[in-house]
Amino acid sequence: MSHGSTKLNKNDISSEIDLHVNEVTVAYNNGHVALFDTTFDLGAGTICALVGVNGSGKSTLFKTIMGFLTPTRGSVTIGGKPVQVAQKQNMVAYIPQAEDVDWAFPVSVMDVVLMGRYGYMNFLRIPRATDLEIAIESLRRVNMLDYKERQIGELSGGQKKRVFLARALAQRGRIVLLDEPFSGVDVQTEAAIIELLRELRADEHLILVSTHDLGLVPSFCDQVVIINRTVLAAGPTHDTFTQENLARAFGGTLRDLRIDHTDAPDGTSNEFRVLSDDEEPLIFGHDGRLVDHWHPGIDEEESK
C-alpha cells in the first residue's frame, strides 16, 4: 500500500472515540439469547481482535455495535452517544465478509467506494468534487486506483477486500469493523491489510477485527476480546491472549501439541505448547504466555 498519500486529518478525530459495551444482552425473537451481560470498553488508537468459536455471538455483537440489533438489556455507546446518533455522523465503517457480497452486482470499484460517501452527499447522492477526491485518494491508499472502472466481480480476493477497505476509508469512519478480513486473501494482501490497519491505529482510529486467524492476532492486535456468548476475557493481548483463556473459549476445537525440551543443556524448563486452528499456530511457554508468534516465510526459510 502506498505510504505517501494523504493521511487522514487528525483534527477530524476527536479524542472521545471510545466504545462502551455495557452489560449487553441480546435475545432473538425465537427466545435464543445470543449474548448476555457483555461488557467491555475500547479507546481510540487501538486494534482489537474479537475471537470466539462459531456461534459465540461475534456477529451478533458486531450487529449490535452497528445498531442493527437493539440490546434486550444494556447499552452500546460510541463517544458517549447512542449508536444510531453515531451512525448519522458516519462514525462507524464496516467491512463485510466476502461471502456476504453479491459480486455479480453491476457496480464498479469506484461506485462501491463512493457508497462510503452517501452520508455526506445530498438526498440525490450526487457526488461532489470533494467526494470524488476522497474516493480517489482512498483507492490510491489501498493501491487500487488503477482498477477503479472494473466491475467488482473481476477482481481477485485480495483486491476485493481492498476495495471495501477503501470504502471504509472514504467514509472517514472513526471506528472500523472488519468481519473476517483475512478469509480468502493471499499472504501479500494479508500483510497490506495489517499495514493499513496499523496506519489507521496511528491516526487514532479504533479498529475491531473479528477473526478466526488466531495466529495472526498477536502480530497486530494490541487488545483482545474473547467471547463465548459473554466476555470470557478482555484486555491487552499479552495478558489476555493466554493459553488458559483460549482453551476456555475454544475447548477441543483447536489442535493442542505439547513439546517438551526439559533435557535442554541449561536444565531450565522448556516446555512449549502449540495451539493451532490449522491456520497459523500459537506457541505458548511453560508460563502459559505467548512465546512468539509464527512468522510466515521466516520459519519456512529457516527450516530449509
Binding site: 452497528m66 445498531g67 442493527f68 451512525q87 448519522k88 458516519n90 462507524v92 465503517a93 464496516y94 463485510p96 456476504d100 457480497v101 453479491d102 452486482f105 457496480v107 457508497m115 462510503g116 452517501y118 452520508g119 438526498f123 440525490l124 447522492r125 470504502r167 467514509q171 469512519g173
Partner: peptide, 21 residues
C-alpha cells in the same frame, strides 16, 4: 430521487444503515 439509496440497500443493507439510511 431514491434510486441510489435503493441500490445501496439492495447491494449492501449493512452499509446503507452504516451511512445513516
Amino acid at each position: 430521487v431514491v434510486r441510489k439509496d435503493i441500490l445501496l440497500y439492495l447491494f449492501d443493507a449493512n452499509q446503507a444503515r452504516a451511512v445513516g439510511l
